[in-house]
Computed example of a mutant assay.
Amino acid sequence: MHEGSGADELAAALLTSIRLLVSDARKARPHGGLTQSEMAALIDIRRAAETTSGALARKAGVSAQAMGATIAALEARGLIEREKDADDGRRILLRLTDAGSEVIDARRDARVNAIVRVLTEDFSAADRATLSAAAPLLQRLAESL
């Protein structure tokens, strides 16, 4: 048993609520959407600033061949670019293009707009204030895991 009254119940309720929120928010996609694996690769490239196909494959838990197909599709759409590593000419670095950043931003904006719509239509000002006060705590919880 964990310390604190109701910690188990709170943890379970938060997990269920957050899982449902994320799942439903993922349904909001701008037109011309990518597959989940393509979007995950784009986001990982953005976070890393530059990376390799092998590093992406290891992070995603897929084969180099599977990641190669994902990278080829992203490059064909102009969302990433390949460049030889200046320090090691055998390595190919992947970087996000401006178009790739725009795709990630459009997806985030679609999700934010879906949540804004629900918050303004279905939640009172007091409800929104409560959620606003809880947001930093949820962030801290996420960062502590």
Rank of each mutant, 00 (worst) to 15 (best):
R140W: 11
T35D: 06
I43M: 11
A114M: 14
M39F: 13
A41V: 00
T70A: 08
V112Q: 08
E83H: 11
K84Q: 11
H31D: 15
A48R: 11
L141Q: 06
A55E: 10
G61E: 01
V22E: 05
M67S: 03
L79A: 04
I71R: 01
S144C: 02
A25Y: 01
M1S: 09
A7N: 12
R95I: 04
I104P: 02
A114R: 13
L34F: 00
L96Y: 04
R82M: 06
D127S: 09
R128D: 01
V103A: 09
R26I: 02
A40F: 06
P136R: 04
D24I: 00
A126S: 10
R82V: 02
L74S: 05
I43Q: 09
S132L: 13
S63Y: 02
S17Y: 03
L21Y: 11
A64V: 05
E75S: 10
E9S: 07
A49K: 14
Q139D: 13
R90I: 05
L34N: 01
E102H: 14
H2W: 13
I115R: 03
G33E: 15
D85R: 01
D85Y: 04
L119M: 15
D122M: 10
E9P: 00
L74H: 02
P136K: 07
M1C: 06
H31V: 14
F123M: 09
V116Y: 08
R77L: 15
A64D: 13
L141V: 10
T130M: 08
S23T: 09
V118T: 12
I43Y: 03
H2I: 13
G78E: 05
M67P: 00
A55P: 01
A72M: 03
E75T: 06
S17N: 07
A7K: 04
V116K: 11
E81D: 08
A60W: 01
I71L: 04
S101L: 15
V62S: 02
A25S: 14
L56H: 01
